[in-house]
C-alpha cells in the first residue's frame, strides 16, 4: 500500500463516508482508492469537475453531518481555499489532504514543502485557522488522518493533513487501526437533517450585522485558543544532551532521523524536533530548548517558511540558520549532515 492508499484507507476506517476529489499527481491514488472502496461501505464518491466543486461538495456533505474528506495537491489546494474559508466560517468539520508538490504555479510533481504558509497562515480570506498535521512516515499519516477526523468534529474546524509526494508515493509496512463505526460517533445536533420536531438548523457564514459577526468570530477564536492549549503535538529525538537541533517536519523530519544517527556516530550532539501540529505550532517546547542549545537549524523543502515560526519561538536565544532545497529536490542525509557540520564548526 502506498502512503496515498494508506491515508485513504485510514479515512474510511475513521468513519469517513463522503469523499469528493479531482485528479492531480501525486495524489491520484487517494481518489482512485476511494473510487474503489468508499462505495463498498455505503459512502459517497464523486470525481468532481474541479477542486472548487469538490470542496463545495464537502461543505454540503459535512453540513449534512457526515465525516467528509477531499484531497488534492498544491495547485488544487489553491482552488480549495475559498471553500476552506467557508467551511471555517460556517464551523464545519472537514478533512483536507494536501499531497504537496513543487510550486508556485504548475511547478512540478516532485515532493515539496512550499505550501506551509498557505496551510498554516490561512490561504483563504478572513480570520480563520485550520489545524494542520504533518506526518513524516506512513504510520504517522494513518494515525494523523484518524486524528484529523476527531479534531475536526471536536472543534468543528477544517483540518489539513499536509503530506508530500514522497510520503504519498512510497511504501512501508503498516498496521491499520480498527475501523470506527460512524453510527456510534457523537451526534451532530447542528447538522441539516430536516427540521422535524425541532427548530430549523441553518449553516451559514453570512452575518450582515457587524455585532453578530464580531460575536461569532470571537467565539470561534476562543475555540482556536483551546486548540492551541490542548492539541500541540511534536516529537523530540535525542534532544536531552544536544548542542545543536534540527527542526523539520514531514518527509524532511524523517530524513533528519537518519542524520541524527550519522551525526551522533561522528560525535556531534545533534537532536531533532519534529513539529507534528504545524498549526498550532509548538512554540513553547522550542523556546524551552533554545536556551539549552547553541544552534537550531531549520530544514525544509522550501525557501524558508516554517523557519519564521521557529525564529518566533527562539528569538535570539540561539542561532537559527536555515537550509532548504527548492523546486522539488529532496535533501539527502549527506546534504543535511553537511549543513549541520557547517553550523557546529
Amino acid at each position: 500500500m502506498t502512503g496515498n492508499e494508506a491515508m485513504a484507507e485510514a479515512a474510511i476506517r475513521a468513519g469517513c463516508r463522503a469523499y469528493f476529489g479531482y485528479p492531480i499527481t501525486p495524489q491520484n491514488e487517494i481518489l482512485e482508492y476511494m473510487a474503489g472502496h468508499i462505495p463498498a461501505v455505503g459512502g459517497a464518491f464523486i470525481q468532481a469537475e474541479s477542486e472548487i466543486a469538490a470542496i463545495n461538495m464537502c461543505y454540503g456533505a459535512s453540513a449534512a453531518g457526515v465525516r467528509t474528506m477531499t484531497s488534492s495537491s498544491s495547485p488544487g489546494i489553491s482552488l480549495k481555499m475559498e471553500g476552506i474559508s467557508y467551511l471555517a466560517g460556517a464551523d464545519l468539520p472537514c478533512v483536507i489532504i494536501n499531497v504537496a508538490r513543487g510550486g508556485p504555479g504548475l511547478g512540478n510533481i516532485a515532493p515539496a514543502q512550499g505550501d506551509y504558509f498557505q496551510a498554516t497562515k490561512g490561504g483563504g480570506h478572513g480570520d480563520y485557522r485550520m489545524i494542520v498535521l504533518g506526518p513524516a512516515t506512513i504510520a504517522e499519516a494513518i494515525e494523523l488522518v484518524m486524528l484529523a477526523f476527531d479534531l475536526a468534529d471536536k472543534y468543528r474546524v477544517p483540518v489539513m493533513v499536509l503530506s508530500d509526494g514522497m510520503l504519498g508515493q512510497m511504501m512501508e509496512p503498516i498496521m491499520l487501526p480498527e475501523p470506527v463505526d460512524p453510527t456510534l460517533l457523537p451526534a451532530k445536533p447542528w447538522a441539516l437533517s430536516g427540521a422535524r420536531g425541532r427548530d430549523p438548523n441553518v449553516v451559514t457564514s453570512y452575518f450582515i450585522d457587524p455585532g453578530d459577526l464580531n460575536r461569532i468570530n470571537t467565539q470561534r477564536q476562543s475555540r482556536y485558543h483551546q486548540i492551541e492549549e490542548n492539541e500541540i503535538r511534536y516529537r523530540e529525538t535525542e534532544t536531552s544532551d544536544a548542542t545543536i537541533i534540527i527542526v523539520a517536519y514531514g518527509a524532511v523530519a524523517r530524513i533528519a532521523r537518519t542524520v541524527v544517527v550519522m551525526a551522533r556516530s561522528q560525535g556531534i550532539k545533534l537532536g531533532l524536533v519534529q513539529p507534528i501540529t504545524l498549526w498550532p505550532f509548538p512554540y513553547a517546547p522550542l523556546r524551552a530548548l533554545s536556551s539549552q542549545v547553541n544552534t537550531i537549524l531549520t530544514v525544509e523543502m522550501s525557501a524558508g517558511q516554517m523557519v519564521e515560526d521557529v525564529r518566533l519561538a527562539v528569538a535570539d536565544r540561539a542561532k537559527t540558520p536555515f537550509y532548504g532545497e527548492l523546486g522539488g529536490l529532496v535533501p539527502t542525509p549527506k546534504d543535511i549532515l553537511r549543513e549541520v557540520k557547517r553550523n557546529v564548526s
Binding site: P23, T25, N28, L31, E49
Partner: peptide
C-alpha cells in the same frame, strides 16, 4: 480520458 494524470475518468 485524463491522459497526463494517468487515465482517470473524463467528462
Amino acid at each position: 480520458i485524463y491522459g497526463m494524470t494517468g487515465g482517470q475518468m473524463a467528462p
